[in-house]
């Protein structure tokens, strides 16, 4: 049976721009996903701890402070350390084009900047989580 997709939405770093993360969280919930929102100012360690506790399929990190390279790098390292290969890592916020390949290389599967429709994010998550689940032993 397909359990509902569980998503951890997190604000990492120090910036307080939570408009986007909240809009996306509500849209994912309206699309039938189970959404856990961490609130503001989390370290990568806190994000990963919450993701493990909540046994999520997806981590969505929102960063608008310019610290995305540092924070995504740390987050990915921790994900590897804890063997979270089956968890999809996504990013949202202000990410300059030239940083996108660096983040994708790190293993950030999707980056959603300003102007992205929430529908696009919903569809992306459904598709990618499906793929990940097919890879896992039942």
């Amino acid at each position: 049976m397909n359990r509902p997709i569980r998503v951890l939405m997190a604000k990492a770093g120090l910036d307080g721009h939570d408009r986007g993360v909240k809009v996306v969280a509500r849209a994912l919930r309206d699309a039938g996903m189970e959404v856990i929102y961490t609130g503001l100012h989390n370290t990568p360690e806190q994000v990963i701890k919450a993701a493990l506790q909540e046994d999520v399929d997806v981590i969505g990190l929102s960063i608008l402070s310019g610290a995305h390279l540092t924070i995504f790098k740390k987050t990915r390292e921790l994900m590897k350390q804890y063997g979270m290969d089956d968890v999809l890592l996504l990013g949202g916020g202000i990410i300059p084009d030239e940083d996108k390949p660096i983040l994708e290389e790190l293993g950030v599967k999707g980056l959603f900047g300003p102007g992205t429709s929430t529908q696009e994010i919903v569809e992306f998550i459904r598709r990618e989580v499906q793929k990940l689940r097919e890879l896992q032993p039942a």
């Binding site: 120090l14 370290t43 610290a67 540092t70």
Partner: peptide, 18 residues
């Protein structure tokens, strides 16, 4: 910068990258 705005010194763990 964000650390100064949040009342944190530059060597605080949360300040890394900011």
């Amino acid at each position: 910068d964000m650390p100064t705005l949040m009342g944190l010194d530059s060597d605080h763990p949360l300040a890394d990258g900011e």
